[in-house]
Amino acid sequence: MGGVTTEQQQRGLVLVVEDERAIADLVRMYLTRDGFGVHVEHDGTAGLAAAQRLRPVACVVDIALPGIAGTELCRRLRGAGDWTPVIFLTARDDEVDRIVGLELGADDYVTKPFSPRELVARVRAVLRRAGGDPGAPPPRTVGAVTLDPLRRLVSVDGAPIHLTSTEFDLLAHLMSRPGRVFTREELLASVWGYASHSGTRTVDVHVAQVRGKLGGAATLIRTVRGVGYACDD
Rank of each mutant, 00 (worst) to 15 (best):
M1G: 13
T202V: 12
G215H: 11
V203F: 00
G35Q: 13
P113G: 03
R124Q: 15
T164K: 02
T32R: 11
A189I: 09
L102N: 04
R76F: 07
G3P: 03
R122D: 10
S190I: 01
L31P: 04
Y109C: 12
Q8F: 01
A172I: 03
P66M: 10
R124P: 00
G70D: 02
G35H: 09
V224E: 14
Y194F: 13
R124H: 11
V123W: 06
G179W: 02
A159N: 06
R98E: 07
T146H: 11
V191Q: 05
G105N: 10
L174Y: 15
G70M: 11
I23A: 07
T223K: 07
V203K: 01
D62N: 11
C231Y: 05
T141K: 02
G37F: 03
D148C: 01
G12R: 03
E20I: 11
A69D: 14
E95Y: 04
E20H: 08
G81L: 07
L187T: 05
P160D: 07
T202H: 00
F36D: 11
L104M: 10
L73P: 04
Q209Y: 03
G143A: 10
I63V: 15
T183A: 06
S196M: 01
A121L: 13
T111K: 00
L102F: 15
D94I: 02
G37N: 07
F36S: 05
G216H: 11
T45R: 14
G228R: 04
P116F: 02
V14G: 07
G216Y: 03
V86P: 06
F182V: 09
E167Q: 15
L174M: 04
L163Y: 07
E167C: 12
T71H: 09
S198D: 04
H162I: 03
D94E: 08
S198W: 00
Q209K: 08
V224Y: 11
D233K: 00
E103T: 14
I87D: 07
V110L: 09
V60K: 02
G215C: 12
E20K: 10
C74K: 00
L170F: 06
I63W: 08
Q52I: 11
E103L: 03
L13R: 15
S165E: 15
W83V: 13
V156Q: 09
